[in-house]
Design a protein around this nucleic acid. Structure first.
Lengths: 134, 134
DNA sequence: CGGAATCCTCCATGATACTG
DNA sequence: CAGTATCATGGAGGATTCCG
């Protein structure tokens, strides 16, 4: 996400503008954040090391996992624990704030699971109607 | 979502793969969807015409509003009502499924409002620590 | 008015190589 | 092992134009 305070607007504004919820959802909606959070949600003590997350989240590159974890850490949702061993070991764990985010996410995923069939049906209907007119 | 590449994983672990929640969150998290939904949530009868939404969502281009509404319509969250007048008038309204999505969204935005100050503080702390070491 | 078509820019992500 | 650095690229989104 980019710096948030740079939106120019006119003096007579009251419409819907970018807001905190949108910023957070933009992060959640990126390609990997939700998957990394889900992985940590399932891990014992909500804690796992870098390589565990990497192999637990199929397809994520080292680079993107690093970047995703950095953002989560920066926002206080995940804590980073570095162990200066040889070879080095780094563990990531959901913070209390990170854990508190799991409930809203579950409410949402619950809604999705409930409505997913209806959404798929809607898509089929929509696409079928489009094909007729084409 | 891309096909999930086969990757080695320990037999007793279930890797986190791309899933429906992620797909939905990816859409919600895009640049405009949440703002358009919020606009409709506030509108009388959750209904507004194209130009109303366009002026209610600051900064959205005609193109992106059209695309965003198409996706919402395709997924059955918004219904499109075309009036063949001159000039033409098109209204968009949340469907019952679209309305049912508002509660999970509110749960989420509630969490965000509650935790936003802590997230901002976490960012300040993180950035301050980074500046010290640089 | 609503929106389709076109062109273009830039950023998020991927791939690869290197390192403490 | 857990990164960082660098380069390449596909696609999201903006600007503009045309249309029924």
């Amino acid at each position: 996400m980019r710096p948030t305070a740079n939106r120019q607007s006119r003096a007579d504004e009251e419409p819907v503008v970018s807001c905190a919820p949108h910023d957070v959802l933009t992060h959640l909606g990126d390609k990997w954040t939700i998957l990394v959070l889900s992985m940590l949600a399932q891990a014992p003590e909500n804690r796992a090391r870098f390589s565990e997350i990497k192999y637990g989240v199929l397809g994520i590159s080292q680079r993107m996992l690093t970047l995703t974890l950095r953002i989560l850490e920066r926002n206080g949702l995940v804590s980073r624990h570095y162990f200066p061993e040889v070879p080095p070991r780094v563990e990531y764990q959901l913070t209390s704030m990170g854990k508190s985010m799991l409930h809203p996410i579950e409410v949402f995923t619950g809604w999705i699971k409930e409505n997913w069939p209806a959404m798929e049906q809607a898509r089929r209907d929509y696409d079928a109607a489009a094909n007729v007119s084409n």
